[in-house]
């Protein structure tokens, strides 16, 4: 799935820079628990779906090698988060939908679960 399709499905807003030609999402993992995110195996084209919107969300993605974060429930990213994400080539998208709704929409659109 490319970035335009993702934004349309999630009524999402892209809040970081994004290399549109290189962007691709194939799998998703939803969690608000960053300790849990840090246990998942390295997976390309994986999106983290989370309601946790703070600097440690970005740091966790950086350490876990995750390059796409979808922040749910209309929560907003701070300028510090956006800056840190862009420094690490992480794309951040905000959606008004809940984590459950976001996951369902992506699953129905062919995005696979990690487990």
């Amino acid at each position: 799935m490319n970035i335009d399709q993702l934004l349309e499905i999630l009524k999402g807003e892209l809040v970081t820079e994004c290399e549109k030609e290189e962007f691709c999402i194939e799998r998703g993992f939803a969690s608000d628990l960053m300790s849990d995110v840090l246990t998942i195996p390295s997976t390309d084209k994986l999106a983290l779906i989370t309601g946790l919107s703070n600097l440690q969300t970005i740091r966790t993605a950086e350490m876990a090698g995750i390059n796409i974060i979808i922040i749910v429930r209309g929560k907003k990213s701070t300028p510090d988060m956006i800056s840190l994400a862009e420094d690490n080539d992480i794309v951040v998208i905000e959606t008004p939908y809940s984590a459950f709704h976001t996951s369902a929409l992506l699953f129905n659109a062919g995005i696979k679960p990690l487990f």
Partner: peptide, 9 residues
């Protein structure tokens, strides 16, 4: 609240 403290670290 920061997403840690679940006894997994």
């Amino acid at each position: 609240e920061m997403g840690f403290g679940a006894g997994m670290g």
